[in-house]
Design a protein around this nucleic acid. Structure first.
Lengths: 109, 109
DNA sequence: GCGATACTTAGCCAAATGGATACCCAACTC
DNA sequence: GAGTTGGGTATCCATTTGGCTAAGTATCGC
């Protein structure tokens, strides 16, 4: 059904890819710089970048032989929204349960 | 590195599993009830439940022949925290960039 | 206690994932 | 214009994933 969130969460389920995201919060960077800290062959690393890009989390642009990569504007918020909604529903429910429990305790029938 | 977030996001990357989470925000349910809306053989569905449980998102307890499943207390917030942190870092940066751009515009050297 | 109910385990299979190597191509550098 | 640098492509490989069927176990209801 919801391919958006699918590829989104899948993209974030890998430590290499999350590290790339974290790095990019500090600003755009070329591929080689993003690759440097990761002990991995470049083609393997490029796969991760492509997965992030098809998930819509990053964008990139090539100038000369250098490809510059940056975070995409909106999409982190989408996943966050989903999580937030679920958590609120769940917390609302437990709150009501606590209220019920307390009510029963005050007035044990 | 961070196996916590790995299994966490991976668990949320599947629509069946997200649907289970959504259902569980309304309260605990037995396996058969969770399974009902999904057009899938029970053993396949149980794999999803096991993945959610090893990711720490749900807990379950068997009474008689029925296994009751409920949301785990804390963990939705963890993923949310990570996303929130990244988003804030990124937004902070773009804010500073905007401020810089505006400053340059006001006082073009 | 016998059948139905509610899982559970054991295997099988195709496709996707995450890594590798080997080789290619374009664009700066001198 | 020859070499180096920064990516990119093509394969290959082992493992994981997400589905299945078949068969098992342990209540529960009568």
């Amino acid at each position: 059904m919801d391919t958006q969130l699918d590829t989104f969460f899948a993209a974030l389920s890998d430590p290499t890819r999350r590290a790339v995201i974290e790095r990019l919060t500090q600003g755009p960077a070329p591929v080689s710089e993003l690759h440097a800290p990761h002990d991995m062959a470049l083609p393997s690393f490029l796969k991760h970048l492509r997965r992030l890009e098809t998930a819509g989390l990053i964008r990139s642009e090539k100038t000369g032989r250098v490809r510059s990569v940056r975070l995409a504007p909106e999409p982190l918020r989408q996943a966050e929204d989903w999580l937030n909604r679920q958590r609120k529903l769940w917390e609302g429910r437990t709150d009501r349960l606590q209220a019920l429990a307390e009510a029963l305790e005050r007035k044990p029938s």
